[in-house]
């Protein structure tokens, strides 16, 4: 557009050249460097609902039980019932349509991938990053099994985890992920959504 203003007579013939001579984003030279594939992989810990970034490895509830006892039970309780130190992870599947609902992993969390992602980035406190990918798959399987969301023998891995449907997956407005971004279309205004 700037080209037209500067050189209207040459507009037609210079249009193609302008896109390279005057790129939309200014060129700030060589600021920033290109990360290697390994660097990206090492940093890329975010796991979305599709589970595209989930690493290799796998685990079952049985394997998870032992890891849970060693790494998690001290705060989350021997049976995942929670304590003063950390929230309940097993049970508490009460109703949500009451004035004071209790939100638990079993009755509230919409995506099983979030369990893997959160253990991976944040657990156990002060030992973040100490669990292997398979440890985390096993812990996730243990928590899901104890909440009656998967059968005991199910192997949890990069393929099976994103397919686990959590009980409250449909409990959010708007339900479709592609509808979330547009606040106005959702009818949100003045800080509130329907």
């Amino acid at each position: 557009m700037r080209c037209f203003r500067f050189w209207p007579a040459l507009a037609v013939i210079s249009l193609a050249a302008c896109t390279t001579a005057f790129p939309q984003a200014p060129n700030y030279g060589n600021l920033g460097r290109t990360p290697s594939k390994e660097e990206i992989q090492a940093w890329n810990q975010a796991i979305g609902p599709q589970g595209k970034e989930l690493p290799p490895g796998s685990g079952t509830a049985k394997q998870g039980q032992e890891i849970f006892a060693n790494k998690c039970a001290a705060c989350h309780g021997p049976a995942g019932e929670g304590s003063q130190l950390a929230p309940r992870l097993v049970g508490g599947r009460g109703a949500l349509n009451i004035p004071t609902p209790s939100r638990t992993l079993a009755n509230y969390w919409p995506f099983a991938t979030t369990i893997w992602d959160y253990i991976n980035r944040a657990m156990p406190p002060k030992q973040e990053g100490s669990l292997s990918a398979s440890d985390i798959y096993a812990l996730t399987a243990f928590i899901l099994y104890r909440n009656d969301i998967i059968p005991e023998g199910q192997v949890i891995d990069a393929t099976s985890l994103p397919k686990v449907k959590m009980p409250n997956r449909d409990g959010f407005i708007p339900q479709r992920l592609e509808d979330i971004h547009d606040l106005r279309a959702r009818g949100c205004g003045a800080g509130h959504c329907p």
């Binding site: 949500l96 349509n97 409990g171 959010f172 606040l183 959504c193």
Partner: peptide, 17 residues
């Protein structure tokens, strides 16, 4: 929370206050 048990997520924008 909503009283019907559903939840509003990503409300994002803070209202006039």
């Amino acid at each position: 929370a909503r009283l019907d048990g559903k939840s509003r997520w990503f409300e994002s924008e803070m209202g006039p206050k």
